[in-house]
Simulated scan of single mutants.
Amino acid sequence: MNATLETNLFNSEDYQRIAKAIAFFRQNHLTHPDLITVAHHVNLSEYHFQRLFTKWVGISPKRFLQYLTLEYAKTKIAQSKNLLDLTLDVGLSSPGRLHDLFINLEAMSPGEFKAQGEGLEIRYGVHDTPFGQALIATTVRGICNLFFLSSVETDDFERMLYLEWKKANIVQDRSATQEICEQIFQPSTLKSQKPLPLLVKGTNFQVQVWKALLNLPLGSMTTYQTLASMIGCPTSARAVGNAVGQNPIAYLIPCHRVIRETGELGGYRWEIARKSLILGWEACLIEDNL
């Protein structure tokens, strides 16, 4: 899998095929479709599908699917029950923590929140990633947005950026976000790792939830109820779920690691297929580091 990360040849069309295949697997899991059936569903031969999938994640589709079962998810939930006692030092000692080691989150002040980005310059670019195209926006104080895009929604997400920062000076500048994209999705290619600062705009409660998400080790899964307990609001699971859904910086603030108590994935702002692929990808990273 590391070879995939180092190639810098992320291909959105490849991602779309893999996402379509995983969605087909999940929708038809009771009938256990074979590899040939799934390959034909994405208009590839069995050989080319197997090769494409292995290039993307480093393991076979069959093995990857083991990380997406309800049984696997329930096991990860059970392991996360001790998160109430989790300290940052314990989290940082987890194998394969990778990105989380280098994230610093800063929240805007209430005055800045109300100002809607006035006086702020935001530069953004759209990049290919292992999980499809992503719009990355940054300021001098840190990354302020990371949106995953579908193949037809780039303009919509650009409008979303303008709506979120109504009074900011927003400039399309892919060169300003290229290095950030590499640091997020190709960390093994960089000679040194710098901290990734994040700048978020939200209510005190939302920021509290987003900070709690940063304490979830890579490869872990937890529930909305456990996350609510982590921030000292055990009766606020629904409100926590809403805050998770409003996470403005996908992947780096790992809202994808929160699932339902039943082991089902629940919702995801950036499509359920993408959530399952990210969780499977992370499970592979953890296995590589064991």
Rank of each mutant, 00 (worst) to 15 (best):
H29D: 14
E121K: 12
H99D: 15
Q178W: 03
F102Y: 12
F10W: 13
K275S: 03
T69R: 12
P217N: 09
P33C: 07
D85Y: 11
E6W: 10
R63V: 08
Y162A: 08
K166W: 00
T75Y: 08
D156Q: 12
K211G: 07
H48Y: 08
W165D: 00
K81L: 14
K55Q: 09
V140A: 15
I59V: 11
V171A: 06
Y47C: 08
C255V: 09
F185C: 05
G280W: 00
A23C: 05
P110F: 03
E182Y: 06
I259P: 07
A228L: 05
Y162K: 13
P33R: 05
E106F: 12
R17F: 00
V207L: 12
Y124T: 04
F131T: 04
Q183A: 08
P95W: 06
T177K: 03
A273R: 05
L216F: 10
P61N: 01
H40N: 15
A134P: 09
T262F: 02
G91P: 04
N145D: 11
K114M: 07
A168H: 01
L190D: 05
K201H: 13
L135P: 01
G96C: 10
G119H: 02
G132V: 01
R174D: 13
S150H: 12
N242V: 14
G117L: 03
L35V: 11
G142F: 08
C255E: 15
P254K: 00
T7F: 08
W281S: 09
I184S: 03
T189H: 07
T129V: 02
L9P: 00
A212N: 03
T223C: 02
Q27H: 04
T223H: 00
I278N: 04
P61Y: 02
W270L: 06
T189C: 11
N104A: 10
S229V: 04
S12D: 15
I231G: 06
D14W: 12
D288Q: 15
Q186R: 15
A134F: 09
T139E: 06
L44H: 04
V140Y: 12
A176E: 02
D85T: 14
G266P: 02
E106D: 12
F102V: 05
L163T: 11
S80I: 08
F25Y: 15
Y268Q: 05
S93H: 11
P248E: 02
L190R: 10
A115C: 00
